[in-house]
Design a protein around this nucleic acid. Sequence first.
DNA 1: ATTCCTGCAAAGCTTTTGCAGCGCG
DNA 2: CGCGCTGCAAAAGCTTTGCAGGAAT
Lengths: 139, 139
Amino acid sequence: MPKNEVIINKLREKGIKVTPQRIAIINYLETNRKYHPSIEDIYTFVIREYPTISLATVYNTMDKLEEINEVVKLRVGEENKVNYDYDVSYHNHFFCKKCGQIYDIEEPLAFFDKNEINGHTIEEVHAYFKGKCKKCQNS
Amino acid sequence: MPKNEVIINKLREKGIKVTPQRIAIINYLETNRKYHPSIEDIYTFVIREYPTISLATVYNTMDKLEEINEVVKLRVGEENKVNYDYDVSYHNHFFCKKCGQIYDIEEPLAFFDKNEINGHTIEEVHAYFKGKCKKCQNS
DNA sequence: ATTCCTGCAAAGCTTTTGCAGCGCG
DNA sequence: CGCGCTGCAAAAGCTTTGCAGGAAT
């Protein structure tokens, strides 16, 4: 079963209503997995199909998807900009300071497996890189 | 020479004017090194001494300090909140999801020393933890 | 039938900008 | 003195909230 269908079922199971707008958003995420879209990106795309959709609906939907753990909020790019990752498995990211693209880093860094540091209990490890991506190398 | 004096000299060297408000901000940072204050924190403190200081001045000053590399902007806490670190040497942070405190992680993680990954050139490595801090353990 | 969602508009927060007057160097 | 800074107010972004009508289950 494709992931978008899995999510739609999961929404129903959780009592979260499945609306055409939400399906459109999920399908967009499905086909733009690598792109790590922002709220604005999602809105700009989905409004083509649903010209009356509002930003509030996009925010609302992404909050629900985050609640049920089907997307992850990223804050790896420019100041105060949020991007979403449709792939919730743990992996790291690379942000290109030139073109703004966010890349997935597939290879696990495996740098930290303790669940405690300095007496603090670790629940989440966040790590990302910034620099110049492959394509922007010579500039 | 104390660090706050070093910074004041550095500002002068760079042609950035040293005003009483800026000195007050730097002194606040000096004595609250571990606290990783937000703009609001700084403003709330300095306004006691300078009742007419404006948020714009705090933003402006922190921007200058960041430009001359004497503070680092952190985005490790709650959504869209910026905190400042007066210690610019590379180290990592722990954010407590319960009390909101940001702790320095002194021990180097040494998890990544390459300057390239997947063909991308790494200029900055960002890593931090989230969880429950030592003090908030039993709650 | 109920409950939740949508879309709109308004409000909230943080940060930025414009500008007149002041003050540091 | 001249340039840069301050303080104020307004504006700009992004996100949240309130609410009436409408849709999903």
